[in-house]
Simulated scan of single mutants.
Amino acid sequence: MKTITSKLILGLGLTLAIGAFTLTPTDTEAKSTMTVTSNQALVADGNSRNYLTTGAAPLYSKVPVYKSTKVVTKAAVLKTLGTTADAGQTYFRGYRAAQTSNGDWYLKVVSFDKTYRGWIFAGTTDPTTNPSDVSGGLKATTTFQESTVPTYFANTTMYFTTPKASTLTYVAPDYTQYKVGRNLNATADFYKDPLTVTKVGTKQNNRDGNATYYYVTDAAHPQVNGWVKQSDVTTSR
């Protein structure tokens, strides 16, 4: 009788164990049941698709519903990138959005310097209508903020500092927009030209120490017109 009872208890335990395993799918099994229901390009203005990474989610090679998906950048690395003090290389631009069958949204993003690229969880709100409304692994950000031009510049002529090849003008200050950069490769040939400051702005999020930039115009050589770092111009010729 004792042997039969033991066998019954053992059999019941195995049945419960198997039942518990069957009712609780593993993460891999759960992923395999999800699908991508939408995958489309983001077409909103680029200024609304600039992001900092929060470190709350990793970067994936694919939308993570596929068994072949891999983590290409860990969340901890992305958290560090979000607070780095570089010139802006580690900002991210979103360019595709995908929704999974459980309602999650993922954005495909690339860092401004193209070092990091992949899919990242961006919350449960549709980013195709408002790319700034994201959460999860991303937060929308302003990379450059223009401000009122001080009246001082109305009667002030500026010049490029001592000619050097590294002094550039930009369509947008370097690393404040994805794939929008230098306007002029060097200003050494124009350092004696008088310049007029028509716009002023600063980098954000401690990128490049929140450096100030001036938009300068050159009446003699309009090809020079563009943004230049404050430290690359002077009132002395």
Rank of each mutant, 00 (worst) to 15 (best):
K62A: 10
K62S: 03
D189P: 05
W105C: 08
G181W: 07
T142F: 07
S6N: 15
D45L: 01
Q177F: 08
T198C: 02
F144G: 03
K164C: 04
E146N: 13
K108Y: 13
T176H: 03
R182F: 03
T157M: 14
T22I: 14
P131M: 05
V200E: 06
L81F: 05
F153T: 01
P222T: 02
P150Y: 06
V71Y: 13
V134L: 03
V72W: 15
G181F: 05
L8A: 12
G201H: 13
P163W: 10
A186D: 13
V200R: 08
N210Y: 12
G103M: 11
G11S: 00
T141D: 08
T53N: 04
K114I: 05
S48M: 06
N39H: 11
P58D: 05
G201T: 06
N205Q: 11
S147K: 13
T28N: 08
D193Q: 08
L195W: 11
G136D: 09
T24N: 12
P150A: 06
F190V: 00
D218A: 04
S231N: 00
G118T: 06
G11R: 03
S32K: 15
L12M: 09
P131E: 01
A75M: 02
D174G: 05
N183M: 08
A140F: 03
Q89R: 14
E29S: 07
F112P: 00
D27F: 09
V71L: 13
T73G: 03
L42G: 01
F190R: 00
V233M: 05
T212I: 11
G13R: 00
T15D: 04
K108E: 14
A172F: 04
Q40V: 11
F21I: 06
G88D: 05
G88V: 03
L138M: 08
A17K: 09
L138R: 10
A57W: 09
T115E: 14
Y95V: 01
G209L: 02
N206T: 06
A75S: 12
D104F: 13
P127W: 04
A98H: 09
L195A: 03
Q40G: 11
Y51W: 06
V180G: 01
G209Q: 13
D232Y: 15
T5L: 15
T169V: 04
N205Y: 12
G55S: 02
T142W: 12
A98V: 03
D126H: 02
S236A: 07
Y91W: 15
A172P: 00
T143N: 09
Q40A: 10
H221P: 15
T15F: 15
P222A: 04
Y66L: 14
R49Y: 03
D218G: 11
D174W: 10
V233C: 05
S166R: 12
D45C: 00
L107I: 01
Y95M: 01
V134P: 12
T115S: 14
T15I: 14
H221F: 10
T169R: 15
D113Y: 07
N205H: 13
T176F: 09
R237H: 01
Y116G: 01
A56S: 12
